[in-house]
Design a protein around this nucleic acid. Structure first.
Lengths: 211, 211
DNA sequence: TAGATTGTTAATCGATTAACAATC
DNA sequence: TAGATTGTTAATCGATTAACAATC
């Protein structure tokens, strides 16, 4: 925990959205924006935008607003996008393979170095030049290649066991797509993508839309 | 809006997690649980669990706790899982195809009736007996087959245009995987899965873990 | 300079936690 | 009945919004 808890999760989860909208503004050659204008397009209140940004420093200028390029760069830095990340995908089923093919991650500096699976039939197959390897060698691979992030795409039954292996190899960040909550020590960061939970939220809202 | 806004999004997003943990308890043949016991395994406070559940009715019994099977069933009903949903996947790239293959959705009552794409090379290809069809016919297909939910897996450039088409066909619920925010009228429900935002949250937390 | 807009403090709102009477 | 645990009200905590002085 320590100091990182200064910034609330509510704020943290808004940061990537700022980043995405600022990128769009940059692409449209807009180089200056006020919190009011940004509010109109992103949907947060101007007050919230100013509060959020001021958690990290005074990026604006009174009477002017914010410089889009500078703000985009600063938020990128806050999010850790000043470096590239070496990742592996663990579990080379449909989802794992689809994520290996998903080029949107490359754009923000993520490299997939290998996929891992337990199914020998998959060993050696390449997805965009990324090879599927034997899960037995995952710990060794992590150490040798200084992997930062593991993308966990196994089924829920093997997720915890595989996560333990990754952590034994030195992994400190897991992007978890398995529909289960991992038990990890607090020096390991886990971000969950629980697809079924998202889908059930949709059905709830859909069902309740005109109640 | 109307009455649906009674229940806060914070509560709604916890419901699928209750559902998942109750299923696990059922599978382990546990048929009774107190809010305190559930708190220990799910990680919400016992008080919060009781508050959450009481938004929807008194499912428990003083001195006893909750009946697992009944509570699982009731939460399923609240989430809209009393019926099956007909869905289509729009955009049959890597992600669309992976989702068509993802059998976890079937388990909770979702049927994928077709995939749609604009690429003629894909027309007629089948994923698990689900055919990829010409996007030109998507409106007609939605109407003819009473599709409930569209799973949007296009790139961000075509997402809004495709969404408009789906809505013109009568779609009221969109599960959006395209990295953009859709503009829709308020009778249409959109649930976003913004993968890049999730990944950037992970990098933020990873980077800040020992600050 | 005057106008605009930030940075920041104060007020409000909503969500979580605590407490306990009701009751099985 | 006595013990346990809910349902629900009250207290606390945190996040959002409003307001405005500072300043570019």
């Amino acid at each position: 925990m320590s100091e990182k808890s200064k910034i609330s999760m509510a704020v943290i989860r808004r940061l990537p959205k700022y980043h995405r909208y600022l990128k769009e503004l940059l692409d449209r050659d807009i180089n200056r924006i006020s919190s009011k204008e940004l509010s109109d397009i992103i949907g947060f209140t101007a007050s919230q935008i100013r509060q959020d940004l001021n958690n990290f420093g005074g990026f604006g200028q009174q009477g002017y607003g914010y410089n889009v390029e500078e703000l985009f760069y600063e938020i990128g830095k806050i999010l850790g996008l000043h470096k590239t990340y070496k990742t592996i995908i663990v579990g080379a089923g449909n989802l794992g393979q689809a994520l290996a093919n998903y080029t949107n991650f490359d754009k923000v500096g993520f490299q997939v170095k290998a996929l891992f699976d337990i199914n020998p039939k998959l060993f050696g197959i390449k997805i965009r030049d990324i090879e599927i390897k034997d899960m037995d060698y995952v710990e060794e691979f992590i150490k040798t290649n200084n992997i930062d992030i593991a993308i966990l795409c196994t089924n829920k039954e093997s997720a915890q066991e595989v996560a333990n292996k990754l952590i034994a190899g030195g992994i400190k960040a897991i992007w978890n797509f398995a529909p289960t909550d991992l038990k990890v020590s607090n020096d390991v960061t886990v971000e969950n993508v629980h697809l079924v939970e998202s889908l059930l939220t949709l059905t709830y809202l859909y069902k309740s839309r005109d109640e």
